[in-house]
Simulated scan of single mutants.
Amino acid sequence: MLAIRGARLFDGERRVAVPEPTVLVRDGRIVAVVPGPAVPADARLVDLGAVTLLPGLVDAHVHLAFDGGPDPVGAIDGAPDSRVLDGMRAAARVSLTAGVTTVRDLGDRRYLALRLRDELADRPAAGPRILAAGPPITTAGGHCWYLGGVADGAAGLRDAVRERAGRGVDVVKVMASGGELTPGTRSYEPQYSVAELRVVVDEAHRYGLPVAVHAHACTAVENALAAGADVVEHCSFLAADGVAERPDVIAALAAAGTTVSATIATRFDRGGVPPGIAARLTGLMRQVGRLRDAGVPLVCSSDAGIGPAKPHGVLPYAMDVAVGRCGWSTVDTLRALTALPAALCGLADRAGRLAPGYDADLLAVAGDPLTDPAALHAVRAVYRSGVRVG
């Protein structure tokens, strides 16, 4: 048995008020959370000192195939799969060392994220747990068409979902609007109709798969909601001239209980925010607040890999953005980085909590992120499945 001790503990939902909290781990699973100083006689104690123990962070929106550089698409254009996969391995490792023990890859090339998922399943120190969507479904010439997921018409969309189900994806990703990484598309314009998105949702649900819908455009958000999407990614409400104010759509999202994955984790100090997003940044931050105030279920995610402001391992910076720019409390933000995205990813009984029966995915940071958001960057130790990351 392994006993991991700190000074404070946040269990994914609340601060646990016990002195010298100690997490007992056996065979990669949490057995108990107990107060110190006593530990079982057969336990090996690792006392991490004045740290806060938290569940490993869960990033529900990353792109491991993109390198986070100034031209992430060009970097893989024409590159052999072996080279792209090497870059994905490095990205996964960076994410893990930042304290992100689970990622959901929402767009790769030729299902490489599935290959990496299976490769890392038994190598917990090499990278996070991966859930993968494969190439995102998109229109001809649509956002991320170059990743190979083009599908048009009802029959084509059904076939696209069936192919992904046959490959063993964990989630189906569909692009309901244009995006900043694809010339010729506009983030504020929709790509698929409600009827087309409903084909994707219905077919995916037949296979027991959730559907994540990329939706920057206000109309795309409406379409995703009407089609029954499980989660709306970004949910930016973009219009040609800014950010649309649509309290009716926000109310409908709340009434439906549709989760929004707010990709707010950003390194603003590194630059590289797309001009179209930078010009709307104030409105986008305000919109996140409106969603929260209306009771829309929210998780914090990153879109890691798509540019310099979105490097791999950027998820902890969601704490700075949510608290500093959106006015969230620290405890609600930590929930949106741990237990809530774990539940969104179908891992409510395995990840995002420090509780008996859960995987021993732990993050230890110096200081107290419940009083100082910057503490989340001061990583002192990371464990995945009870294995300490080197």
Rank of each mutant, 00 (worst) to 15 (best):
R15I: 13
G289V: 09
S329T: 11
T101L: 03
P135M: 03
V171Y: 00
D320S: 15
R380I: 11
P190M: 09
A374Y: 09
S95N: 13
P124K: 06
G6K: 00
A309L: 08
G49M: 10
G367M: 04
G327E: 09
A366L: 12
H216P: 08
A204E: 04
G208H: 07
R286M: 14
S187W: 10
P37H: 10
P274L: 09
R117Y: 11
V273L: 14
G179W: 02
V387P: 03
H234C: 09
I30R: 01
A342K: 02
L106G: 07
A126L: 11
L48G: 04
M319F: 07
R384W: 03
L238G: 04
R270P: 10
D152M: 12
D320V: 15
L157M: 10
R335T: 00
R14V: 09
L116T: 01
P369K: 02
V84M: 09
V73S: 07
R8G: 04
A360H: 05
V379N: 01
D42W: 10
A351T: 15
S187L: 15
G208C: 11
A318Y: 01
G36L: 06
P311N: 14
R186I: 13
E163C: 14
V288H: 05
V46D: 14
G271L: 10
L238S: 03
T52G: 13
D230K: 07
T330S: 07
W145A: 14
G313D: 04
P183C: 05
R93W: 15
C218L: 14
R93N: 14
D349A: 13
L363R: 06
A160K: 00
P124H: 03
C326M: 12
F10K: 00
L376R: 03
A227Q: 00
T258Q: 05
I76W: 01
A278Y: 12
M319N: 05
G68H: 02
P247T: 12
L354E: 06
D77A: 15
R186M: 11
P135R: 03
V365A: 07
V73N: 07
A38N: 13
I264F: 05
A348N: 10
M88W: 06
G141Y: 02
L57G: 02
G179I: 05
P356R: 04
G307C: 04
W328G: 00
D349S: 15
A279R: 13
A318N: 05
G271Q: 09
D202P: 08
V299I: 08
Q287W: 11
D170V: 05
R14P: 05
G257S: 11
L181M: 09
A224N: 02
L112P: 00
A227W: 00
G208D: 10
S385H: 15
V31T: 12
A204K: 03
G178E: 01
D159Q: 14
I306V: 13
T259D: 10
H61F: 07
A220M: 06
P308N: 10
A322S: 13
T102Q: 04
L284K: 03
D368W: 09
W145Q: 08
G36H: 08
D170L: 02
V58F: 02
S261G: 12
G208F: 10
T185A: 07
P55V: 09
V211R: 02
A155S: 13
L48A: 03
A7W: 06
E119K: 06
L347F: 08
G156F: 03
V25W: 01
L209C: 06
G313S: 08
H216V: 08
